[in-house]
């Protein structure tokens, strides 16, 4: 049974939570979330650890290519038998899946490659099964600045630098 929220000065700041219109996950403003939790194939955790420095070092480049990922974590859990991946991103999930797979496929293969039964992003059926079998929606979700996207932040940084340069020049 759900209990009722008792209104107070804190609940006045509560964020409006919806769900993704077409696909899994909660949503606040422009931010969506999705997580994956699944069993790893035998030996997969070891391979992941070995490759991790390279995967980590390339994360910035691949994710920058995608341009909508705010936060991405992959964690080995349960004595290396399972992996948890949590992602916060801008906009919708499902409509962009195909584009993300085309753009960041090689990197995603490195991250998700150890999930039991997963045959790699080239095999779209396998991707569908992976998503269907391992995804889940979080119970509690908070996000700062829900209406500002990763792209907006980059734009604001450029703008802020331009304003700074202008003020410096005026000095």
């Amino acid at each position: 049974m759900t209990t009722k929220v008792i209104e107070n000065e804190r609940t006045a700041m509560s964020q409006h939570i919806t769900r993704q219109p077409d696909g899994p996950g909660k949503r606040i403003g422009k931010k969506g979330e999705i997580s994956f939790l699944g069993k790893l194939a035998p030996g997969a955790a070891k391979v992941f650890r070995e490759r991790l420095p390279q995967i980590q070092a390339e994360a910035g480049s691949w994710e920058d290519g995608v341009g909508t990922v705010v936060d991405f974590r992959a964690t080995l859990i349960d004595n290396d038998t399972r992996m948890l991946v949590t992602i916060v991103y801008d906009g919708d999930f499902k409509p962009y899946l195909e584009d993300v797979l085309s753009k960041a496929g090689p990197w995603l293969d490195q991250v998700f490659g150890g999930f039991e039964g997963f045959k790699g992003v080239k095999d779209r059926k396998s991707v569908e099964e992976l998503v269907a079998n391992t995804h889940f929606e979080c119970d509690l979700f908070y996000i700062a600045n829900p209406d500002v996207t990763a792209r907006d932040v980059a734009k604001m940084q450029r703008l802020s630098k331009a304003v700074g340069d202008l003020l410096d020049a005026a000095n």
Binding site: P21, D90, D92, P95, T149
Partner: peptide, 18 residues
């Protein structure tokens, strides 16, 4: 990924162009 994508992402949202 054709009509529905264009309608939902490009016609009725502004995210993709900030």
């Amino acid at each position: 990924r054709q009509f529905e994508f264009v309608q939902s992402q490009w016609a009725t949202d502004g995210n993709f162009i900030s």
